[in-house]
């Protein structure tokens, strides 16, 4: 074997990793770079470097209104879906009741249903109930499809909880409430937090169901979709990149805190 092939075979894994990550991150890098593009109407070709878009992210008409709506809907949907989903997860993970296995299957249905079908059906339902599509119909729709994900995530965490820990707490004079407060909840909390983050990201970037049920309320994905047809303003890239950076920071902080709590020396 000559030197080049040896080097190649030894670094194959690394080369593969670099290509893999390039595939994953190139679009994000592209988004990020073009958030600095000094574009006028359409952000498709590189014109020149500017910080203006970052200094004035609300510069493009309606972008911040749409973003604000998305954030409000995301927070509300996350709040309700996390509470309802967590309660359901406890009920399904902890109590034996008639038809539990049926419920376990039913909870997967909203995840398996095509969004386009669900969006259309929801709209039909809202209209026949006499609701006008708008802000609250979006929230209701989002809570609905987020719940399944919350239930599944939290239930997995509950299932991995050793029941003997709660029994040990009871043995050590903690009544049912104290046991939940001191043992069960703190141990399940990471699962609930993960579920909430998941719910928020699902809600924030949902387009299909939202598009059906939003009436004339604009959300960020809807804004991006509509403006992409006539030329996406660079501010959308700024907001996209910021979301990515915030998510990245959350993940890194989470990792750091998790490590500290697990006590890795």
């Amino acid at each position: 074997m000559n030197k080049a092939t040896r080097w190649f075979s030894r670094n194959l894994i690394r080369i593969y990793a670099v290509i893999g990550f390039a595939y994953l991150f190139l679009p994000i890098v592209y988004t990020f770079v073009f958030s600095f593009n000094d574009s006028k109407k359409s952000n498709l070709v590189w014109v020149g470097f500017t910080l203006n878009n970052w200094k004035n992210p609300c510069g493009a008409p309606d972008v911040c209104n749409a973003l604000g709506n998305s954030l409000k809907i995301g927070v509300l949907a996350t709040f309700f879906a996390t509470i309802l989903g967590t309660l359901m997860a406890f009920a399904m993970g902890r109590y034996a009741f008639k038809g539990r296995s049926v419920v376990n299957i039913l909870i997967f249905l909203p995840m398996a249903t095509p969004e386009i079908v669900m969006g259309a059906s929801l709209l039909t339902m809202f209209i026949s109930f006499g609701f006008n599509p708008g802000f609250w119909t979006i929230v209701i729709a989002h809570v609905m499809f987020c719940i399944s994900f919350v239930v599944v995530t939290v239930k997995a965490r509950i299932a991995s909880l050793d029941p003997r820990l709660e029994q040990a707490a009871m043995d050590l004079y903690a009544d049912e409430r104290e046991t939940f407060r001191r043992i069960t909840f703190p141990l399940v909390a990471p699962g609930i937090a993960a579920a909430a983050l998941l719910a928020f990201s699902l809600s924030f970037d949902d387009f299909i169901i939202t598009n059906f049920n939003s009436g004339d309320v604009n959300t960020f994905p809807k804004f991006v979709y509509i403006s992409a047809q006539r030329g996406l303003p660079a501010q959308a890239n700024v907001i996209g990149s910021s979301m990515f950076l915030i998510a990245l920071i959350i993940v890194l902080v989470g990792q750091f805190v998790g490590r500290k709590r697990a006590g890795v020396r």
Binding site: D162, R164, L165, Q167, A168, M170, D171, L172, Y173, D175
Partner: peptide, 15 residues
């Protein structure tokens, strides 16, 4: 109730 008994347990797996 377990928490009202003057009994404590060292569990098989410590818990």
């Amino acid at each position: 109730k377990p928490y009202k008994r003057p009994v404590n347990t060292v569990f098989q797996n410590y818990a």
